[in-house]
């Protein structure tokens, strides 16, 4: 049986600069994997390459997601296969409301799964339950996606989208940067609620803020475009104590 996510010898560059220099990583189903590393080590690039961001060119290696070759798929195909990215810096979509985006996204996924699109009532119900839980107001749903929101609000909205779209594989890129304790609790809580057998998480971070609220099953240490070590959650404490220079 194939693994949930299997990355082998992944190389990627932006422009002429090689950023991923042979990443090997396996994530099992139902697990939370933390990726820790100093700024510039390539961890955000890893999330971009998994999701198919066209800014990065893959120059070697493979990514298998539930046996499927992600590198052969377009970004939307990867999304509909169940890969979700909570962006570190979410992009602004002026004039497009969050409700509009999510309706289009949910229906795209349902079409992909050959299910009927949700009607307006079902959709609003699906949205409202999650919005309430995450403290997302109606007004936030009507406003343009990521336009004029504070850093913390944007992160909460990313988490909200994750909750609405219910993806199998959730990548959270630096969700804890710029978040206060209350917001961290909300995001951490959402992840805890969503944890289940068929769903895995990849939490990208450079310190332990979010990991205080979500206990990872495994921790990978990344430096200079490579995964140096994979261990259990005790690694987090080691990083906090000694920094990355000792890996």
């Amino acid at each position: 049986m194939s693994a949930f996510l299997e990355i082998k010898d992944l190389h990627a560059k932006v422009g002429d600069k090689e950023i991923l220099k042979g990443v090997n990583l396996t994530i099992e189903s139902g697990k939370v994997m933390a990726i820790m590393g100093p700024n510039g080590c390539g961890k955000s690039t890893l999330s971009a390459v998994i999701t198919g961001n066209p800014t990065y060119q893959v120059t070697g290696g493979s990514i298998l997601f539930k046996g499927k070759d992600l590198l052969k798929m377009t970004p939307d195909e990867r999304a509909n296969a169940g890969v979700f990215l909570a962006f570190q810096r979410p992009t602004e979509l002026p004039g497009v409301s969050m409700a509009q985006l999510l309706k289009a996204a949910l229906n795209a996924k349902r079409t992909f799964l050959k299910e009927k699109p949700l009607d307006a009532v079902q959709f609003m119900k699906h949205l409202k339950v999650r919005a309430t839980a995450l403290g997302i107001t109606d007004e936030m749903l009507k406003r343009s996606v990521n336009v004029g929101f504070s850093g913390g609000e944007k992160k909460r909205l990313e988490t909200f989208q994750m909750a609405v779209l219910e993806p199998d594989f959730c990548i959270l890129d630096e969700m804890d940067s710029g978040l206060d304790v209350d917001a961290l609790k909300v995001v951490g809580g959402a992840i805890s609620v969503m944890r289940e057998e068929k769903r895995s998480f990849m939490i990208i971070t450079h310190h332990d803020d979010l990991l205080r609220y979500v206990a990872p099953d495994k921790v990978a240490i990344m430096r200079d475009g490579k995964i140096l070590q994979v261990g259990d959650k005790e690694l987090v404490a080691k990083v906090e104590e000694k920094g990355y220079d000792n890996f």
């Binding site: 961001n53 970004p75 939307d76 999304a79």
Partner: peptide
């Protein structure tokens, strides 16, 4: 490109 990628990441072709 960023806007396109963001929307595509949410599953839109």
């Amino acid at each position: 490109e960023e806007q396109l990628f963001y929307a595509q990441q949410r599953g839109l072709n």
